[in-house]
Write a protein that binds this DNA or RNA. Structure first.
Lengths: 208, 208
DNA sequence: ATATAATCTAGACAGTGTCAAGATAAGAAA
DNA sequence: TTTCTTATCTTGACACTGTCTAGATTATAT
């Protein structure tokens, strides 16, 4: 919670302030409440001030998206550090960390992925941080392969399959597409674990 | 391509006309171009005429969504009929049909699932058709289980896992999150097949 | 100190979703 | 048939939105 004390009547360090405000609105009021004008208003500037720092609304969203990926990256990174030697739990804990992020930062997650960001707009910073996130999955997969937990083969392909599995489950859950009969009978952790174990060669578990 | 010939100066069978127009706009100009006013304009009525038939913009989108699910349902149904006895191909062809639908009707697919439709709004008709779609997956999974292609266990859970796998891959692809190195090396069919085979007990193939 | 560039404001434009009042037609009741 | 009622559709308004232009203000560099 660092603050820029200088309150220069006319300037601040907008850009970052706008991103922060955007992230807040996203977390508090959801993706549908995220408008450029509201961000500007909330940040205490005029409605077209953001255009000095962002080409578009899309550009702001991309910046927010990057912030989200950084946070996710950090979470996955620390999970990796914690379990990189406890290989029996590595995959499941990584998946669970991913899932947790999506559950708790739902709207950020939605903005990071689905719909809003079109694939043409490949901002280099975005691409970079997405790549880093993906690389963690690849690393986890490689270790699991050498431990006999995942089938051998092109680690990139396997990583894509694993990522699709986890991401698919998260998406279906967030969109309320997982049948009630399932949600009533099992908790999320079990469902996730079961799904992952469809992919593993030997069953793995979640810690605690 | 049935048409309502009667062109009653003042009335038609709006509601269906609005849905059709919406579907068209979605297919031709994408989800971001889908506005209530444009649909109305295109259908030749005033901008608030739709409110006689739909509570909301959301309600129109839900109706369009239902239309999409019906189409998907029909595709999966006919794929099922074609391969229900050719069990070696049943799972992969179902998955491929699903994938194809998503590729060709991308924006309809996006509307059907992600983001726009909030999970609170559970229109009974929508829920019903989604259920039917899901049931096909369950049926496919059950057959694959009895053929030793998929692991035994709660068919609902396995179906969820399988669906998550396929849906996840589709989503990642549509959002451009599948790494270039993979897309360059393999074609979509192979990637899909590889992913599914991570889940099967014995390798399956795609026809032709 | 002055010129140049970055930043911010104010105002406008064409869109949007939604609501309220009223016109128009269709169907039911008399 | 004529009248009443209800569904449908139009017009106009309101508060929003993203984006653009012109001008004010400040920082930076010369």
């Amino acid at each position: 919670m660092e603050m820029e004390n200088k309150n220069p009547y006319h300037h601040g360090d907008l850009k970052n302030a706008l991103i922060r405000t955007g992230v807040e609105i996203l977390a508090r009021e959801g993706v549908s409440a995220l408008s450029l004008r509201k961000v500007a208003r909330r940040a205490g500037v005029s409605h077209s001030a953001p255009y000095a720092h962002f080409k578009d609304k899309q550009a702001l969203i991309t910046a927010i998206s990057i912030e989200g990926f950084k946070k996710l990256l950090q979470i996955l990174e620390s999970t990796f550090q914690e379990y990189k030697d406890d290989t029996g739990y590595l995959l499941s804990e990584t998946a669970w960390a991913y899932f947790n992020f999506a559950i708790h930062e739902t709207d950020t997650f939605k903005v990071m992925f689905s719909g809003i960001l079109e694939k043409e707009k490949k901002d280099p910073d975005l691409v970079a941080v997405v790549q880093q996130t993906y690389q963690i999955v690849v690393r986890v997969v490689s270790i699991c392969q050498s431990e006999g937990i995942l089938a051998v083969g092109d680690a990139n392909l396997v990583a894509t399959a694993v990522w699709a599995q986890i991401y698919g489950l998260i998406s279906l859950y967030l969109e309320g597409q997982i049948s009630h009969s399932i949600l009533d009978r099992y908790n999320l952790k079990s469902i996730l674990l079961f799904s992952i174990n469809q992919i593993t060669l030997i069953p793995i578990q979640l810690k605690n």
